[in-house]
């Protein structure tokens, strides 16, 4: 198994308050890795460090190493370049106020892909891979804001796929969705891991158990337990993990 992302003693603090207290973890290639933990556990902070969206926050300090394929990209690659390799799907699906087609073509167009045929192909493939194609194929030019919440979230997944990133980060992507929409996203992710490395942040331990290959449990800025999902859920080594996955706190 190849290590795609390695965090070494990653620390972060917001305005002097420590939110990550030295995280060390290997995220494997072509796997779905679930990050779970109660709010304030630091899992979303890790996401915003990985996609460097934290640079838009004031007063954050970061220490430690972040390695992609063994390389520290902090100094060598700009945030804009990095985000083309590390795609993100946010908790609240907000498409841009444009058509379905243009939402997906947005990223490729930024990369100067303007050839209509190429764009068409990217849009079609991305929608198919996000399990959305059948529902929208007849109305690609209607506003993306008219889609249902579940469809919007899959559209956000599709527009991320259109960039052909190596890594996809999903920050509680199903928190506002109904079970059927959630199932569709989960089906899509299970297919996508063949081509991508996926990190799924979720408060829903059942979802992590269902679709992730590896699971990590965070608590108060620390990584409490990490391992193969089956092992971790059937046989947690640490009591805190057991309490969390059995729903004793959350």
């Amino acid at each position: 198994m190849d290590v795609k992302i390695r965090l070494e003693n990653l620390k972060a603090s917001y305005n002097e308050q420590e939110v990550l207290k030295g995280i060390t973890i290997d995220v494997y290639k072509n796997m779905i890795t679930g990050f779970m933990g109660p709010s304030g556990s630091g899992k979303s902070t890790i996401i915003s460090i990985l996609n460097r969206m934290m640079e838009f926050e004031d007063g954050i300090r970061i220490e430690g190493k972040i390695l992609f394929d063994g390389f520290d990209l902090t100094k060598t690659i700009s945030s804009v370049e990095l985000r083309k390799r590390v795609g993100t799907v946010f908790a609240v699906p907000i498409p841009l106020p444009r058509s379905i087609y243009e939402n997906i073509a947005y990223g490729p167009r930024l990369n100067r892909i303007n050839d209509r045929e190429k764009l068409d192909q990217i849009v079609i493939n991305s929608l198919k891979n996000a399990f959305l194609w059948d529902e929208v194929k007849d109305r690609l030019n209607t506003s993306a804001l008219k889609l249902s919440g579940g469809q919007q979230q899959r559209l956000c997944l599709a527009r991320t796929l259109a960039l052909h990133p190596e890594i996809i980060l999903l920050d509680e992507p199903c928190s506002g969705l109904d079970p059927i929409s959630t199932a569709k996203i989960e089906d899509a992710l299970s297919e996508l891991k063949k081509d991508y490395t996926i990190i799924l942040v979720s408060n829903n331990t059942k979802q992590i158990a269902r679709i992730s290959d590896y699971s990590a449990f965070f608590y108060m800025g620390e990584l409490i337990e990490y391992g193969n999902t089956e092992d971790l859920f059937t046989n947690p080594r640490i009591k805190k993990t057991d309490d969390y996955i059995s729903g004793k706190f959350g």
Binding site: F90, V92, Y106, L110, T160
Partner: peptide
Amino acid sequence: PRTYREGSLAMGATKWQTIYK
């Protein structure tokens, strides 16, 4: 909404691209 900006930035747009697009 801030989320419009985040969505665009997360897709690899620069700040200026996000502003004018």
